[in-house]
Write a protein that binds this DNA or RNA. Structure first.
Lengths: 249, 249
DNA sequence: CGTGGGCTTGATTGGAGTCAAGCGCGGTGG
DNA sequence: CCACCGCGCTTGACTCCAATCAAGCCCACG
């Protein structure tokens, strides 16, 4: 837990940052980047580590540089729901709130690019590039959250799993620059339990449905976590969506 | 359907607008309001009327002045999920997108304060008060959406209904200035069917659970739509949440 | 007075939850 | 080195909550 290899070479230079053009800083010019660099620092968390607990103070906001994190809400009796999946370039925190509403947990090793909250907030006032981009990203997240509401409220267990895999496959292909189609392959960044918490299922049901999709040849497994999608359209056919939609892409 | 009484006296003067201090224009100064007035107009829709269809072009953005509208997503086989509930002061549309992603439907008579989209978008660039407020409102909506994800993914039918009623009661009390407590009373702005589409249930289950809450004395009904909550804490006890939380307030 | 929409209630079914057992693998310590 | 443990996962048997199918009520409206 305390031994943390660094797959991302921590680098104070924004210009060759892997998320330079997708993160909250995407529209910033050289001047603005310089301002940001003054209040920025990197942090790395091990898989499974909690980044912040719901209700705790958080004195920074951050972009995910590498890895995957989740936002989770917990009920008093222990029922849990993942309400956000944070992938590379996603933003964590609210610039004008110092407390977080959800547990933030690293599900793989995660590297964050953190900005001290107060200076970041002040900078936003005078930097439309920053707040415009944040508004755009927030609207996209809202669309993604609404897509999930449909999945949670109306889809069957099998459709939920297929939808989740399709989103991962698509985002993965997008990041890798490959075009969606045949033999997409990616690693599940979540345990079965975390998947169940995301999809509003039990972990047994997740396991059964993955087995079912495998049995029917929709996916192939290599080990427990490597997924191969021989025919992406076939997978899409299992999601219950009509062909296009793809708000989450 | 074409006969539309006007409960809100359409008035071009923002200064005595009922949502002046909560809507997207909340932080605008006199100058900025004047700019807005130049591109603003009112529209009223009857209960049940569709304001825009998913995928259609929308040449304005708008604030809800009075009434209740929903955002709905539909799957090819007809399954429907309400993904947003728009009450007074809520904002409709994305300033930099001309197509809407969801059906927007008036569930009561609705009056909108509309702004032509392009001038509104251009105005945002130079008016931080506008984009800051919109960012704040969008972040709040994102929190509300995440609260709903918990409800959809993890709560029982009874807890879903109780949660929904608690939110309406609270928002209603807030608007009326009353403090939450005893004998809160409000009108359901949705049919049982619309409620079922919001909560990821069938209309029969909604009906049964409302009957159950009534039988157990948690709520009283006057007609089909007037709800009386004799003891708000008792209702909260049925939601499954711990006492405080209240992100949606 | 008949019609239809919104709603309620009952009987039955079915999909996912629950409870339980066991596998496979990597890590640790004897 | 290997036996043991624990964690992540799978699978089976059974249960139960909400969906489905079906009938009928209430009331506003033509």
């Amino acid at each position: 837990m305390n031994h943390r290899p660094h797959p991302f070479k921590v680098n104070s230079d924004c210009s060759d940052c892997p998320i330079r053009h997708r993160a909250v800083c995407a529209r910033c010019d050289a001047d603005e980047l310089e301002q940001l660099e003054a209040v920025k620092f990197y942090r790395t968390y091990a898989a499974g580590e909690v980044i912040v607990w719901a209700g705790d103070a958080m004195d920074f906001v951050a972009s995910v540089v590498t890895g995957v994190a989740t936002l989770t809400q917990t009920m008093e009796d222990g029922r849990r729901q993942v309400v956000g999946l944070l992938l590379a370039s996603d933003f964590i925190g609210r610039p004008n709130r110092d407390r977080v509403a959800y547990d933030v947990t690293a599900t793989t090793e995660v590297t964050l690019c953190c900005f001290r909250r107060k200076p970041f907030h002040e900078m936003m006032e005078g930097t439309p590039h920053l707040s415009q981009r944040l508004l755009e990203m927030t609207l996209d997240e809202l669309d993604a959250a609404r897509e999930w509401m449909l999945i949670l409220g109306r889809k069957t267990a099998r459709e939920k799993i297929a939808s989740f895999l399709a989103i991962l496959a698509r985002r993965n292909a997008g990041a890798a620059g490959a075009r969606p189609g045949v033999n997409m392959r990616f690693e599940l960044p979540l345990t079965r339990e975390a998947m169940s918490e995301y999809l509003g299922l039990t972990l047994e049901t997740v396991s059964r449905q993955i087995s079912g999709l495998k049995r029917d040849g929709v996916i192939l497994l290599e080990g427990k976590r490597q997924i191969i999608v021989p025919d992406f359209d076939r997978l899409l056919g299992e999601t219950g969506d009509d062909a296009e939609s793809g708000v989450l892409a």
